[in-house]
């Protein structure tokens, strides 16, 4: 193979690589640069690690991190809910094709739309509490979005409802590719629903579950802004009860005119997300291997 022919494929992809490097690389470089500057307007003086010191020394930042970590608690729930629904659909309960569409609808709708609807539902005098009061369950009629103790859990309910839809579709797609004869054989051997799920279906689902868990972890750390923005009244409230790291960055950049601080927090969030991409790739590889060895 000549030197020229070895280079040819790289030359073909070079324009796209350069475009991507410009679109993603340039802003990234600028964010790293800004994180070391006291930016006023569009630039500012170099101040070393001062922005990082200020961010890491601020209670609000750590509170935001804690809220992101708290949101991770939603992942096991999402996995269980998604698996249960996916298995039910896989069992082809009557009308399963229609149910499949219905469960995926929340994922198709834009987050702000469903969050606004949910917010109305969960108001103190909203439909959810009205129903609870009608059922004489007044003790359960909480101030879902107006209480600092409850608001983040309300956000979590919304996230579980919407993001589980992705899990259901992923899991169902994987199940559809399983060898049905094994499951039929188990049925003939007298395995009940739980035994079939536990010993036959789940072991073959490991790769796709890992994939979903890693994707959801990244979501919880860096893609829940729209949820908290709407439910938290655009303030991360009540108080600071629903402030997450993304919201912290948004506030620093847009509302308090501190691009340097926003950049420092962004760099830290970026590095954490990058660290999580490696397990994501591993999970994807495992899912592919599972598929290949089936």
């Amino acid at each position: 193979m000549t030197r020229t022919s070895r280079l040819t494929p790289y030359l073909y992809v070079a324009p796209l690589v350069l475009l991507i490097a410009f679109v993603f690389g340039y802003p990234l470089v600028r964010i790293f640069e800004f994180s070391f500057k006291m930016v006023r307007g569009i630039d500012g003086p170099w101040i070393g690690f001062r922005n990082y010191q200020l961010v890491l020394g601020q209670d609000l930042f750590w509170e935001s991190v804690l809220h992101n970590v708290q949101l991770l608690l939603a992942i096991p729930v999402m996995v269980i809910v998604s698996l249960l629904v996916a298995i039910l659909l896989y069992e082809r309960v009557a009308g399963w094709k229609l149910y499949r569409i219905i469960v995926f609808v929340p994922f198709v709708l834009a987050i702000p739309i469903i969050a606004v609807v949910m917010k109305r539902m969960f108001q103190f005098s909203g439909p959810v509490n009205e129903v609870l009061r009608w059922l004489s369950l007044d003790f359960m009629a909480l101030d879902w979005i107006g209480s600092s103790d409850v608001a983040l859990w309300t956000v979590m309910i919304l996230i579980i409802w919407r993001e589980s839809a992705l899990g259901i579709i992923l899991f169902l797609a994987r199940m559809m590719s399983l060898d049905e004869s094994v499951i039929e054989a188990a049925k003939l051997e007298g395995a009940n629903w739980w035994q079939r799920a536990r010993y036959i279906i789940l072991p073959q689902m490991r790769g796709v579950i890992e994939f979903f868990v890693v994707v959801s972890t990244i979501t919880m750390l860096s893609a829940v802004f729209a949820y908290v923005y709407v439910i938290g009244g655009g303030r991360g409230g009540p108080g600071t009860a629903t402030v997450v790291v993304e919201f912290y960055i948004f506030n620093a950049l847009i509302r308090t005119s501190l691009p340097g601080i926003a950049s420092a927090a962004s760099v830290m969030l970026f590095l954490v997300s990058v660290a999580l991409i490696f397990p994501l790739f591993r999970a994807r590889r495992r899912a592919a291997q599972d598929e290949a060895t089936r």
Binding site: L60, D143, G146, S147, S148, R235, G237, P238, G239, T240, N251, R255, T256, S257, L258
Partner: peptide, 17 residues
């Protein structure tokens, strides 16, 4: 702005709740 977001808004909300 920093005071507005960090103190002015949250204090009222937390007192009211």
């Amino acid at each position: 702005g920093q005071f507005y977001e960090r103190a002015a808004i949250p204090t009222g909300q937390q007192i009211v709740q």
